[in-house]
Nucleic acid binder design. Structure first.
Lengths: 211, 211, 211, 211
DNA sequence: CTGTAAGCGAGACGGTACGTCTGGTCTTACC
DNA sequence: GGTAAGACCAGACGTACCGTCTCGCTTACAG
């Protein structure tokens, strides 16, 4: 999660509870203040921790917020609803619900903005948030293949490229609707979106994208 | 663009060149520093203008950046390439090209992040950036209808809803791929994406989304 | 006193009252906290002034304290008591009275201590405190010469050297008794000290010191 | 010197060398950094000792520095040069030589400054530094009385008062010239100063100071 | 063609947060 | 129990910007 001196055997060990308190305080501050008015001094105070403790563990505001927000998405689960379309609709709705929470909106977009000028930060976001949830796409596909809704995918490279496209489309559309358009991601929208997505994918998007 | 005292008839008029100089300086600073390290004092210096002049015209950093970035998207044009797919591919590529510029990335995402806590700001973004470019979707559709590639749309409400969905999907996917995934939006990707989108839309997404 | 851009015609002029408020607040803080616990942030608060204002005018704690303390010694006056001995006793008592004040003790000794490692600071102390008060020695001597108590001094270099010695002896003895010995500088002590000093000087200390 | 648990019979005994190492490290740090930038953490590191160890033995920076500096003055010796004036000149020069060392200047003046607000500290300085060296005045006087240069002093109270005055004048003048005036205490200055002092004392300063 | 109202540059103002450093304490593991 | 290591809380440091203000000057319309 954050860098730790790997083999420090002596000295007082780092407080185990401090991490959790700091991340929770960060989310709390994001809700109340938003990213731009969040200050590390305030987070430290809320967490009942000295500023030095915070800086000892995270390099700055961005890294802290990424970790605080990433935890939010761990509660995403692929529902087993019997059909691919229903599975997708379920997970998209979950995703939208989390993204509608103010700590997610404020924090995630801000660090994405910062990441446009900081490759290490983008990598951290990708690792902590995106790749960690890509499991949902993979699991959904394999489940659909078992059900016979999707053909087995022989080429792993193509499979990976298609999974990325799906992730860009799902996450992008939900984020854009929520944050830019400012419209709710309700069941009707999700159903329409899922229909377009599945119909579009049926018949080999990957084939075309690969030429 | 920005508020101006409506009926000030007396006194020295505002410098006409200052606005353009400030917006250009803002974009320059966005390129060099990114949003979070951009300071209004620095923009004023770059523009050869006093800080007071800047504050007289814009309420703050966010409003200034929205205006500076919005101008970038005015150069988008719908190419007339003979087929709907090619039109879409063309405009998506243009959009991706603009979005790849650092002043666009840095600025746009940051103000979107700020807008999560500021409805007035989101409205300003929607008006200045999104709605201003929605013309492209509408024009592309009507052109495709003339060509016979799309059926005429009888219900204007459904038409509007579909246009919004398209915009969310296009803008969202491009933004996500560029900023989060960090992968280039090249011709291969655009072709794959457009294929999925068009195949998905064919046959009445709006119908399903409307029930 | 402190550096000032000499010919800045534009911009908001510096607040005239801020200087006095800051120096007074510094003395107040010296009384309450002493030098080592005095913080510039606290001084700024007491003076009703921002920390930046303070840093804009003084380079740091030492320079500020020198100026704050130097003002205290401006109230020294050479009494015209009719005899050299009485004049000296009067001014030594005044000096001791000022030095007994906590803001003088705390501040002066601390900056002298700092000056052991900072030549610029020692020069500032010498200029602001010592040389500014050396007038007392010079005036006292010329007055005594007019009275016929001292012979006219033909050699200005010798005169200056003697004045320095006198200053070192007077200031040094009073400071040492007050701060190190911790004994009061009362009239009895002053009379004894002055007797030793005058008897010692009578008959040409300067002559011997010059060979 | 510093408090020691008097009857600790069990456990690991305190390192005997640690004290000396810490005091030497303190003087070293005083030379390099001066009092205000000296930190106990740094002293501990230089001495190869844990901060805990240091705090267990001294209450704080001031006490530590007093002990470190006091040792410096133990090398003062009254030379037996055959005349009172020469004895005084010799010891004044020795004193000035020690005081010119940066660890003495920096440390001594700083703790004197601190002592203006801390009576316990002033007492510690007086006991460790001043009273410990007052032997020089007493020994010098008695030697001069043996030689017949000074009359025997019948009244012990007067004798003590005169000794104090001498100490204030000698130490004060040397300190002031060294630290405030910033001029060297060379042989010429010492000869002039001693002349004034002895001539001033001859004939009963104490008598006048006592009335 | 002069008065006046607003805009202009410069830069000081009271503030807030930064990220670092130090002081003094506490908690480990080892000796 | 003493020690070295180092994390802990608390809070000051000096810097950078914030958004506002006070200046002396310029501009251009209005009377």
């Amino acid at each position: 999660m954050h860098s730790r001196s790997p083999a420090s055997r002596t000295g007082r060990p780092r407080s185990a509870t401090a991490d959790a308190a700091i991340l929770a305080a960060t989310r709390e501050a994001l809700v109340e203040l938003g990213w731009s008015k969040l200050t590390l001094g305030d987070v430290a105070t809320r967490a009942g921790v000295a500023k030095t403790t915070l800086y000892r563990r995270w390099a700055g505001k961005n890294e802290l917020v990424v970790d605080a927000v990433a935890e939010l998405f761990d509660e995403l689960e692929l529902p087993d609803s019997g059909s691919l379309a229903a599975d997708i609709e379920g997970v998209v709705l979950q995703f939208a619900t989390i993204l509608a929470r103010p700590e997610a909106k404020s924090g995630l977009m801000a660090v994405v903005a910062e990441a446009t000028r900081d490759d290490a930060l983008r990598e951290r976001i990708r690792a902590s948030v995106v790749d960690r949830q890509k499991r949902l796409v993979l699991e959904g596909r394999s489940r659909a293949q078992v059900r016979g809704e999707l053909p087995p995918e022989p080429d792993p490279a193509t499979a990976s490229r298609t999974a990325d496209l799906i992730f860009d489309m799902v996450a992008g559309a939900v984020v854009h609707r929520t944050l830019v358009s400012g419209e709710p991601v309700d069941e009707a929208w999700v159903r329409g979106f899922t229909l377009v997505l599945l119909r579009g994918l049926a018949g080999g998007a990957a084939h075309t994208a690969a030429d």
